[in-house]
């Protein structure tokens, strides 16, 4: 518990920081420099455009649906995988992680193959008069696919490492299944879960490749924020495009800030628990 880290060579620190600067910090700085170049006023004016507002609303809607669905599903899957041994467990985990390594383009393509006018379910949709591809449902489905593994990936390693003793103890003490879940399981994974949800949300709002295949690019209707950025960029409205990109980057930074805060709080809580003991 009193592990005192010994010094890391200054050279190593500098090298790591240099790598982060060139890869991560400078692109971000370049982005914000472009925004500031145009002036804050013009950047803010970009958000008065009704099409840009529609894009922001649509992105929020897509995230508002994708996040809970994939969080609930992810919790259930993590419970199975981390707490039980069953045939095909590794297979299931591989399938769940598959979307991470599938090209976003493919993630969009599969929905077109299913629900497009030439797709498997085209006749059914036609009869119901429901539009999936090139409408909000298609955007939601593509986003669900892309953000599918985030929660599971955060939870499983942690839950495996924690073991199931605490939960078994809770049961022995007479807690019911849901009580155990709310009072033992969930608090134990709280931080990892939130971290997963934050990343899920960030990806849901920022996905480009997959939604670009299923969007149809109808202005003010099926353009999410990243697609709107591309549209503005191609409209010779670079200032507005960079303003919107800056907003998404800011969102990413807030996400990361919130994560760092969570991590710090959790560590403090853990330390507080541990020290008196």
């Amino acid at each position: 518990m009193t592990a005192r880290p010994h010094p890391v060579p200054v050279l190593a620190v500098l090298a790591a920081l240099a790598a982060l600067t060139f890869l991560v910090l400078l692109p971000l700085a370049a982005l914000f420099a472009e925004v500031l170049d145009q002036g804050i006023g013009r950047a803010l004016a970009a958000f008065n455009d009704p099409e840009s507002r529609a894009a922001i609303r649509l992105t929020a809607l897509v995230a508002a649906i994708s996040v809970p669905v994939n969080t609930i599903g992810g919790l259930a899957a993590a419970w199975c995988i981390a707490r039980f041994h069953f045939a095909g467990r590794g297979m299931l985990l591989t399938f769940i992680e598959l979307p991470l390594s599938v090209s976003p383009v493919i993630s969009g393509l599969v929905w077109v193959l299913l629900f497009g006018a030439q797709g498997w379910f085209a006749p059914v949709l036609e009869r119901l008069g429901v539009q999936v591809i090139f409408a909000t449902p298609g955007l939601v489905l593509a986003t669900l696919f892309v953000t599918f593994p985030f929660v599971v990936r955060q939870l499983v390693p942690l839950m495996v490492a924690q073991g199931r003793e605490e939960e078994e103890a809770a049961l022995t003490l007479g807690a019911g299944g849901w009580r155990m879940f709310w009072h033992v399981t969930l608090p134990n994974v709280r931080w990892a879960l939130l971290q997963g949800v934050l990343l899920l949300n960030a990806r849901a709002m920022g996905e480009f490749g997959a939604v670009s295949v299923v969007s149809g690019r109808i202005r003010g209707q099926t353009l999410t924020m990243p697609l709107q950025i591309e549209a503005l960029y191609n409209d010779f409205q670079a200032p507005a495009a960079f303003a919107m990109a800056g907003l998404l980057a800011l969102l990413a930074l807030v996400t990361l800030g919130a994560r760092a805060m969570l991590e710090w709080q959790t560590r403090r809580a853990v330390d507080a628990q541990v020290t008196p003991a």
């Binding site: 692109p27 971000l28 982005l31 990343l199 960030a202 924020m225 998404l248 760092a260």
Partner: peptide, 25 residues
Amino acid sequence: QLADALVDLPFALPTAVAGIALTTL
């Protein structure tokens, strides 16, 4: 801690935004 948070930026930053930013650079 700042550097630690920055590591996740490629996760969180939309790929199109990253593409535009990297190309600009």
